[in-house]
């Protein structure tokens, strides 16, 4: 296999891991809640995108629509359910499982067991005699763009300042006049929107079914577990390491071993670094500051 082929495999794994995990990581990092309905938010994004594009709208509109649909859903779920459970982390995790059941079963009732998916746009390019999908290459660029945008959101904006303060200490932020409930709500909506975007972006590449979210589950969980509480740096680092493991094993053995490898390396990583790559970043960061 050519060097470009190997790079392509790696960036494909990396992109998938990052996009699958980013929404989950942001909600986990901020609120300590693992959103077990993450996969279903991705699914909703994919459905919305597919429907919009099938109506004759261009792809970018469909993708934006997918993200917005999931954001709206996230807003409603937060108001109705999650906002009542901010103090009860484990209960809210169980509640998100209820949400996931309702969403996937509800979608099954609404649209049946599967939906005609849209075709993958942009065709392919030929490099060194192998064909590569332009759309998938574009996804990697988009993923990097999304990470940068989120980074700017958390470092350069008023919301980001409040969000980081809330993450450090909820009580202190509250006493300083930060409306932490609002920060939590906004975080949940942003996390949902990112999940929707992931679904929208991958909609042309997979079969659209109510359970398609499960395809993202293992990858998003392992990325967040290895990444730890820092949603951006943690996810990028763990996406890089896990992407490497995944693509190497997938190419050399099989896609199944790529997946198993993810799980095994994750168990080893958190055995060594209980707080994930976030802990590693904080340790070296503190050393440098001295």
């Amino acid at each position: 296999m050519s060097l470009f082929g190997i790079l392509y495999q790696f960036s494909d794994s990396f992109t998938f891991l990052i996009l699958a995990a980013l929404g989950l990581a942001i909600i986990f990092g901020m609120m300590g809640i693992i959103n077990l309905a993450q996969g279903e938010f991705i699914m909703v994004g994919a459905y919305a995108t597919t429907i919009i594009i099938n109506q004759g709208f261009p792809y970018p509109v469909g993708i934006l629509g997918g993200a917005l649909a999931a954001a709206l859903l996230g807003f409603v779920m937060d108001r109705l359910i999650i906002s009542h459970l901010y103090q009860r982390v484990l209960d809210s995790v169980v509640a998100t499982w209820g949400i996931s059941l309702v969403l996937s079963e509800g979608m099954l009732q609404l649209f049946g067991p599967s939906m005609q998916s849209v075709s993958m746009p942009l065709g392919s390019v030929s490099i060194d005699g192998s064909k590569y999908s332009v759309y998938k290459l574009l996804l990697t660029l988009l993923a990097i763009g999304v990470v940068i945008l989120i980074y700017l959101l958390f470092t350069k904006t008023e919301f980001g300042r409040k969000a980081r303060a809330t993450m450090q200490s909820r009580d202190i932020s509250e006493s300083l006049g930060v409306n932490t409930k609002a920060v939590y709500s906004e975080t949940f909506v942003i996390g949902s929107a990112l999940a929707g975007l992931t679904g929208a972006l991958y909609a042309p590449t997979m079969t659209i079914t109510p359970t398609m979210g499960n395809n993202f589950m293992v990858q998003s969980f392992v990325t967040v577990m290895c990444g730890g509480a820092n949603p951006i740096l943690g996810s990028v680092l763990s996406g890089g390491v896990l992407g490497l493991v995944n693509s190497t094993l997938s190419v050399t053995i099989s896609a199944f071993f790529g997946k198993i490898g993810l799980l095994i390396i994750t168990i080893i990583i958190i055995r060594v670094l209980p707080t994930g790559f976030t802990g590693l970043i904080e340790k070296t960061g503190a050393r440098r500051r001295r």
């Binding site: 693992i34 982390v89 484990l90 995790v93 499960n214 589950m217 293992v218 969980f221 392992v222 967040v224 577990m225 997946k259 198993i260 799980l263 994750t266 168990i267 958190i270 055995r271 209980p274």
Partner: peptide
């Protein structure tokens, strides 16, 4: 898991991944 200090939600995630695998 437990000697590695993994607890609560993370145990749920790992065991879910193991089951799926």
């Amino acid at each position: 898991m437990f000697y590695g200090g993994i607890n609560d939600v993370f145990v749920g995630l790992i065991t879910m991944c193991v089951t799926i695998s």
